[in-house]
Simulated scan of single mutants.
Amino acid sequence: MSWITAEAALAQLQTKPQTLYANVSRGRIQSRPDPADSRRSLYRLEDVERLAQRRPGPGRTATVASQTITWGEPVMPTAISTIADGRLYYRGKDAVGLSQTMTLEAVAGLLWACADPDFGGGTETESDSALSALAGLANRQLPTLGRTIAVLRGDAIETVNSLAMALTGSQRSDWALHLRLAHHWRRPDSADMLRRALVLLAEHELNASTFAVRVAASTGASLSAATLAGIAALGGPLHGGAAVAMRDLSETAEHRGAPSAINVYLQQGRPVPCVGHRLYPMGDIRARALMDQFDLPPIYAELDDAIQSKVGEQPNIDFALTALAAAFDLPDNAPLTLFTLGRSIGWLAHALEQVGTGTLIRPRANYVGEPINLI
């Protein structure tokens, strides 16, 4: 069995790095860590050669286009972030490295290509719901059409301000966002971990909620309305709402032990929640970067070991967020709150980028219904 570098594989496939990683996540190309450099991967030559011989011709255009919607090659170019060789990069900078020192405000400046914004200018709101807070703002905020990106950055700041006021309360609005959350939850010792989590969650290229934001922004909708689309998509159990399933697993593990809890899922043919990530064949780098910075509660440490031994995968970011909430005794909704506040920065970066293209996202449907009666 022969193994080649990513550069050699890309040269044979004549494609983008994201397509190579997607083929690995789908099991089409086998990969393994490079013995000479554990930060890099090698790829099975036979798999690469097989795919290189099957490059699509004109007759498969519709099929290929359809497949891009499901974990396929990105459907649009972006300069905001990418996942390459198991690492996450924000405008070319390693996200894990950024999480060691940067605040969410500084990441917003990086992703929005501007000076670090001030998110302390929000007005007090009676709403404690992100959805209702942004719905009120969306009724007042202007559409994006005909307005410059420089002006729209002000709308982006206003949107995050409104969201932050709803999620952190109206006090201490002159503090950094992670400090406001720690104060709101009365857990000052959690502040640095919240900062790291927010930075790691800020952006993740064309995930489901970000794509929803870009579609809304492409219509000329206001930035707050586009962010609402992201929040709606984020809440699903296959996205930011996955922490609910993780809490159920941890509760089962508390009663039965971690190995038995994992066995229950596997014996019933149920996927173990918060495990693995298609874009990280070697493990979700965000999860490990976060979990390495605090002591896992005993049950989560046991689950971490049981998952790796019985499933053969690594815990993902949803596992890490739930473990973080348990370690610092944060509210049950803390994982989703962190996801919403952190990811709003990436959503707005994509909304601004989409507005800058001046194009409408409008795929065509492949009709598979009843035959059309032309009579």
Rank of each mutant, 00 (worst) to 15 (best):
M1W: 09
I4H: 04
T5R: 05
A6W: 00
Q12P: 00
Q12Y: 06
K16M: 08
A22H: 03
V24Y: 05
R26Q: 15
G27I: 06
Q30N: 08
Q30A: 15
S38P: 12
R44G: 00
E46I: 05
D47H: 09
L51V: 04
A52P: 14
R54V: 00
P56D: 10
G57L: 11
G59V: 10
T63C: 05
T63N: 07
V64F: 09
A65G: 11
W71L: 14
V75S: 14
V75Y: 13
T78R: 04
T78Y: 08
I80R: 02
T82Y: 01
Y90W: 09
G92A: 09
G97V: 06
L98W: 01
Q100T: 03
M102I: 00
M102V: 00
A106L: 05
A108E: 06
A108Q: 09
A108F: 11
G120W: 13
S127N: 14
S129Y: 12
S129N: 14
G136W: 04
L137S: 00
P143G: 15
P143K: 09
L145T: 15
R147V: 09
L152T: 11
R153T: 13
G154A: 12
I157M: 11
I157L: 02
T159W: 10
S162H: 13
S162G: 14
M165L: 07
L167W: 06
T168L: 04
G169N: 07
Q171T: 14
D174S: 13
L177S: 02
H178Y: 12
L179R: 15
W185C: 08
P188W: 11
D189T: 08
L194D: 02
R195V: 03
A197W: 04
A197V: 11
V199F: 04
A202H: 11
H204K: 11
A208S: 13
S209I: 05
V213L: 01
V215W: 01
A217K: 04
T219I: 12
A221M: 02
A221V: 04
A225I: 06
A225G: 09
A226N: 12
A226Q: 11
L228K: 01
A229N: 13
I231D: 04
A233C: 09
A233W: 06
A233R: 03
L234K: 00
L234T: 03
G235T: 08
L238A: 12
L238C: 05
G240S: 10
V244Q: 13
M246E: 14
M246F: 04
D248V: 11
L249Y: 13
S250L: 10
H255W: 02
R256P: 00
P259S: 09
A261L: 13
I262F: 08
Y265C: 04
Y265L: 03
Q268A: 11
G269I: 08
R270G: 00
R270E: 13
V272P: 07
G276L: 10
H277W: 13
P281A: 07
D284T: 06
M291F: 03
F294A: 10
L296H: 10
I299A: 01
Y300E: 07
D305T: 15
V311H: 13
I317G: 01
A320E: 05
L321N: 07
L330C: 02
P331S: 10
D332C: 00
N333M: 07
L338N: 06
L338Y: 01
T340R: 05
T340A: 13
S344P: 05
E353H: 14
E353C: 12
Q354Y: 02
V355Y: 03
G356S: 12
T357S: 07
L360E: 06
V368E: 10
G369N: 01
I372N: 01
